[in-house]
Design a protein around this nucleic acid. Structure first.
Length: 371
DNA sequence: CTCTCCCGCCATTGT
DNA sequence: ACAATGGCGGGAGAG
């Protein structure tokens, strides 16, 4: 009886690795699984099973993706795949909305150093209630206001509407949460922002860096620049490099093996996870993504804080020379979306930064190959 | 130690 | 009442 004895096929993988279970990795796998032309609808249970995670996690990913328009709720348990193509418009809509709501915060940074050239406009506080007077249902919208989806949208508005280049999560929390918040609420909000940052990072829409000035870790907006076409330098593909460094994506998103818990006797817990999947299929109890990853290592499953090298297009990093025209065309492709000067400038700035680090990555790659 | 942020309890909301 | 959603924050893994 194929009851998934703790780690049969891959007994060597008995270690719990937190990274493998991150929302970012889950998001990547989710995207990889559903980014197909013939995906009519996405069933939550189906997704949970195929990705080997608990249903709860699917809600997280789906809610965030829905905020960007990639998926849309169709009915109970059902979402429809909209695709990446809608991202640009979704972002534009958010930007406009943000501008309208005066999302240009100012009470946002703790020190004027936190931003790159931002003209302080007095001490006007930053508060936006998004008070939509449309519906008369003013009852407990409290829940909705706290939703991950709304937080996600506000987070991107922050990037799109403020002229700030780097945003630290606590700054974001302060800005999005009204000013004077108790530390508990703050902490929770930051936890959520980390969640969001992880999925955005996995999609390469933001990048984790450090604010040049302050040493603080911060995020930089990259925006959507298209689905990475394969040719993706999946770290696991080319070399054996067993370096357990920033590996991402290459692992499936979990399956049992709780973190530290070692249920003394039996573990009747986890009713819905594990089990099925290995009905008659020889012996694997691998989740679908894992199987996918076994071969076909060229996909674009990138996890959180992925190898920023992930970018699309053939990118022949071979001789370290990145053709500028690629960036130029990219720039021209995207520029139209930005109406205001500040954003345009920012964009140019990004391109610069991107180029420089790309060169860096290329060099590392070379050095590594010489090994 | 601080920074991250997974996990899953359980309150809400939907059927 | 039961099922689907999804806040929330404890506390463990990373660095």
């Amino acid at each position: 009886m194929p009851v998934l004895s703790s780690g049969d096929c891959e007994s060597r993988q008995a270690l719990y690795c937190r990274k493998d279970k991150s929302l970012g990795v889950l998001c990547s796998n989710f995207l990889r699984l559903y980014n197909k032309d013939d995906i009519e609808s996405i069933g939550l249970d189906d997704a949970a099973i195929r990705l080997g995670v608990e249903r709860r996690r699917i809600y997280d990913v789906v809610n965030i993706l829905e905020s960007i328009g990639v998926v849309a709720r169709k009915a109970k348990n059902q979402y429809s795949w909209k695709g990446f193509a809608v991202i640009p418009e979704a972002l534009e809509a958010l930007r406009e909305e943000g501008v309208k709501e005066n999302f240009t915060m100012s009470s946002f940074l703790s020190s004027p150093k936190d931003l790159g050239g931002y003209k302080n406009a007095g001490s006007s506080e930053f508060k936006f209630e998004v008070q939509d007077s449309s519906s008369g249902s003013s009852k407990n919208d409290n829940r909705k206001e706290k939703s991950l989806a709304l937080l996600t949208q506000n987070f991107v508005k922050l990037f799109l509407c403020s002229g700030v280049e780097f945003i630290t999560l606590d700054n974001a929390a302060v800005a999005l949460l009204g000013d004077n918040s108790n530390s508990t609420a703050m902490r929770t909000k930051i936890r959520r922002l980390y969640d969001i940052a992880n999925v955005f990072s996995s999609m390469n829409m933001i990048e984790k860096t450090h604010n040049p000035e302050t040493r603080k870790p911060a995020f930089r907006w990259l925006g959507w620049r298209g689905v990475p076409v394969d040719g993706f330098p999946c770290p696991a593909a080319s070399e054996k490099s067993e370096s357990r460094k920033r590996m991402f994506g290459t692992d499936l998103t979990n399956y049992d093996s709780k973190r530290t818990k070692v249920e003394p006797s039996i573990n009747l817990k986890y009713p819905l996870t594990v089990k099925l999947e290995n009905s008659e299929n020889s012996c694997d109890n691998k989740s679908e993504v894992e199987q996918l990853l076994d071969h076909d290592a060229g996909g674009y499953v990138f996890g959180p804080f992925a190898p920023k090298a992930v970018i699309q297009q053939t990118v022949s990093v071979q001789n370290g020379a990145m053709q500028n025209r690629d960036w130029e065309s990219l720039a021209s492709t995207h520029r139209p979306h930005y109406h205001n000067q500040a954003l345009s400038d920012l964009f140019v700035h990004y391109m610069e930064a991107w180029k420089s680090w790309y060169t860096e990555v290329a060099e590392n790659k070379q050095a590594q190959e010489v090994s």
